[in-house]
């Protein structure tokens, strides 16, 4: 390990390299304000880079662009099972599917529930994940290993299995949780908020390990000297996190946040399994389950596609706005 002092931008760079957001390149120092220098522009041969990129682009095009294109295309047609199997002709609807979707009050209700629920999940996941990552750095090897193994176990558990187990834990008749808490036969899935809360617990449980492991790796890359200096200055644990770790881990936090937003906005299995396909009278529907009901349960593929396109646009917008905000603050990814 080379000796580095905290003032050098290379410190920040190391954390960054690990996130994989940009390839490492040799550097010869840069401005000392923590912002890494821009890479030197490389303008060698117009076609060559594209040639190297071509295989990746073909794969991305085939696996990403084409399905998205089909999704968009289908959303402009009347496309149900009858059309797919040739029982009726396919007709162009223009924005008809979107008009139907936006005219449906249930859609807006579901959208709102999805946004609020996803936000709650993201915040909880990040809080739990970061807290445990810090904890990991503070405990001895054995408890650390135990925590790691527990987290990896949660991570490796398939969503359906995890959801079923959580549902059982909170079962009004046989669940141990109600017995321990003395709640009697309280049904968690009956009330709208308690059902969402139960699902939130499960979502956090199965997605915090990703945050924890990633952030933990980031913290390990922060040189001990920096933390030591902060401690010598008498900073509290919270203060160290807020003023030292969080800024240095920013790129990592950005990645896990975006990942969590996308992940939690698209949550399907947990809701589908734990609330029995959307809860009592559909009170726990989120967009993905709603789209599934439209597209597959009732074979209205075109309407389902329209929901898919709307979701895609929302996620794209959220991600872009988020990245932009970060850029505004003078940080580069």
């Amino acid at each position: 390990m080379t000796h580095v002092t905290p003032q050098e931008p290379g410190v920040v760079e190391r954390g960054r390299v690990r996130t994989g957001t940009r390839p490492p390149h040799p550097r010869d120092g840069g401005p000392a304000n923590g912002t890494p220098p821009r890479p030197r522009p490389r303008r060698r041969g117009g076609a060559t880079p594209w040639l190297y990129l071509a295989p990746a682009l073909v794969v991305v095009g085939g696996l990403l662009v084409y399905p998205v294109y089909q999704l968009g295309l289908i959303s402009f047609f009347e496309y149900t099972q009858a059309q797919v199997s040739g029982g009726e002709p396919t007709t162009f609807q223009g924005l008809g599917n979107y008009a139907e979707l936006f005219g449906d009050p249930q859609f807006w209700q579901v959208l709102l529930a999805t946004v609020v629920f996803a936000a709650a999940c993201v915040v909880s996941t990040l809080a739990v994940g970061c807290a445990l990552a810090v904890l990991l750095t503070r405990v001895r090897a054995v408890p650390r290993l135990a925590l790691m193994l527990a987290a990896l176990g949660a991570w490796a558990t398939p969503a359906i299995t995890g959801s079923t187990v959580w549902l059982f834990l909170f079962d009004p008749d046989f669940g141990p949780v109600n017995r321990v808490l003395g709640l009697g036969e309280y049904s968690w899935t009956y009330g709208r908020f308690s059902a969402f809360f139960l699902v939130l617990l499960q979502v956090v449980w199965c997605s915090f390990p990703f945050v924890m492991v990633t952030v933990y790796a980031g913290i390990r890359a922060v040189p001990a000297e920096v933390l030591e200096a902060a401690q010598l200055d008498g900073a509290s644990q919270w203060r160290i996190w807020r003023s030292v770790l969080a800024p240095m881990l920013r790129p990592i936090l950005v990645v896990v946040t975006i990942q969590s937003v996308i992940w939690d906005f698209k949550v399907f299995t947990q809701i589908y399994v734990m609330t029995g396909g959307g809860g009592i009278a559909g009170q726990n529907l989120v967009l993905n389950v709603y789209a599934y009901q439209k597209a597959f349960a009732s074979s209205q593929y075109s309407l389902g596609s329209a929901i898919g396109v709307v979701m895609l646009l929302i996620l794209l917008a959220v991600t872009l706005v988020y990245l932009r905000l970060l850029r505004r603050q003078g940080e580069e990814l």
Binding site: G72, L73, S85
Partner: peptide
Amino acid sequence: ATTVAAATLIVSACAPQTSDNS
């Protein structure tokens, strides 16, 4: 560029696939 390309594709698109189930 991608957006424009995608838009062009959509505009010039033919209908989605159906099966010939006569």
